[in-house]
Amino acid sequence: MSKKLNNENLLRAFSDVDDKYIEEALNYSLKGKKANVSTLQNRALIGSIAAVAIAVVGGIIFLNISNKSSEAEYNASAHNAAVQEEVSEMNTLEIEAAVCEDEIDGVGGAPATENETSVATMDASLDLDMYMPEELGNIVTSDYEVSDSLLRTSYFDANGELLLEINQYFDEYDSNGIQDIDDEYLQIYEAVHTNDGITIYRDGDDCLGATFVRNNNYYIVRTPMGVSEDALQTIIGQI
């Protein structure tokens, strides 16, 4: 037999959840997660990306790479210590490889987790015209396409050629939900190009990924949302 429920009695029903969850939320808020946090630490450390799929054309090798942060040496400055802490919280220790050839949503099946950084590499020789570094550095326009379940961001070069598409999928949210998400993601996907050919995607100070080419490989790095640029650069340095 089906049971009916509305949002008000659901809100009321929350009152009755187990004491331990209430206590957990109470103690946590009273203590605070981090005392005397620095500006950097104040940034969101680990976030989540709702079903994000980065679409690239061609064969893709997906890797969850090791984060060697625990072995890395950092100097004693507060800044680096904060970056180190941030990076270490993105521990991604398992190497996992999968080949997703001819799959538009190549990395979509391995999204965004709460605490993992994923790196997809693609042999740039597969389609050098599209993925050579100088071309990546020439992204001049971007476009957004929004539908009920998809936000597609497309990047084009000066000739109007498509360089990169980022597809973000949402499942069956109502119109209000979609609107919220659109706002969120449009804001998130600010693409910033650094001098060393890395394109960083970020929302204000919070980064969620990067793309770059190295050794003839095209890399797509996706971090948990809310990572600082310093931490992201550290991870890229470890790749």
């Binding site: 946590y28 969101a44 709702a50 919220d180 919070d206 949302m225 809310g226």
Partner: peptide, 11 residues
């Protein structure tokens, strides 16, 4: 309170 970014909280 939890020292998370607003983006993380929303998502």
């Amino acid at each position: 309170k939890l020292h998370f970014g607003k983006s993380k909280v929303k998502m």
